[in-house]
Simulated assay, not measured.
Amino acid sequence: MPAPRVSVRTRIFELEMVLAGAQPPVRRRVQVPGEIDLAVLHEVVQSAMGWTNSHLHEFEIAGRRYGIPDPDWPSQDVVDETKGKLFRLVEQGDRFGYVYDFGDNWTHEITVEKITGAEPGVRYPRCVSGEGACPPEDVGGIWGYEEFQAVMADPAHPDHDERLEWARGSFDPHRFDLDETDRALQWLAWRPLAPVS
């Protein structure tokens, strides 16, 4: 299936995504077409933050939960995320939540910072800024992440070598690479608006 195309009518939503409670702060600012559904926004969050899409997730917008409904639990009252278009659910200034991994409970606070027109020749979605490294998967949520960082910072800690190996030799909680993060979103790219000639 060909990638969707950005048009002159496409509204671009600039979203700030903050991992709640993380120290040092972990945040990303992304720009996405407003016509994407929440299933695609889930992929944007995963790719931009650095998660591996290994666990369940859910959005909460204006008191409603959006995700992947479980046919075995119809009473859960979860709206199918593929049926929720971003531009129909939020406006500039709105805030909403995204939870990833119901065990570790990584809560993300997402703010619609601004809504603009598309720039000719620009690929969307794209990451325009950020800070902080994504915590390792399955580290135990915010509390486990704090402990993980303390162990990593103390070479004398009895668990240091084990955690270092688990982190594949190093982990810098302050690391953020804009180009690397933006490249992680390329697989979701819409065809850009043609430059004006």
Rank of each mutant, 00 (worst) to 15 (best):
V99D: 12
A167G: 09
D70Q: 07
N105L: 09
P173W: 00
Y124H: 05
G93A: 03
Y124I: 09
E165K: 11
Q31L: 15
G93N: 03
V8C: 01
M49W: 06
E60G: 00
L193K: 00
S47G: 01
D77I: 04
A156M: 10
V18T: 15
I110A: 04
A48Q: 03
I110C: 08
A48N: 04
E109F: 00
R64P: 02
D70P: 09
D172N: 15
G140V: 06
T107F: 02
V8L: 04
F102E: 10
R29G: 00
H108P: 07
L15A: 11
K83V: 06
A184H: 03
G140E: 09
H55P: 10
A184V: 04
A48V: 11
E131V: 02
P125W: 09
W166L: 13
A184D: 12
G141H: 04
W106K: 05
R183G: 02
L185S: 06
V112H: 04
W51K: 03
R11D: 15
W190F: 15
E137S: 01
L178W: 07
P120D: 12
E113T: 02
S54L: 12
D70C: 13
M152Y: 07
T82P: 00
S47R: 14
L188W: 09
V151N: 05
R88I: 00
P2I: 11
R168F: 12
F148S: 01
A167D: 10
E58Q: 15
I68R: 09
S129K: 00
D154A: 12
D182K: 01
G169L: 10
L56A: 13
A62V: 03
S54M: 13
V26F: 00
R11V: 09
A153L: 10
D70W: 07
M152H: 02
T181R: 05
G63I: 11
G144M: 00
D154S: 14
F96H: 01
G50D: 09
E113V: 03
D94T: 07
W190E: 10
G93E: 11
V18I: 14
G67M: 08
P33F: 00
G84A: 15
D179M: 07
E109Q: 13
Q76K: 03
V45C: 12
R65Y: 08
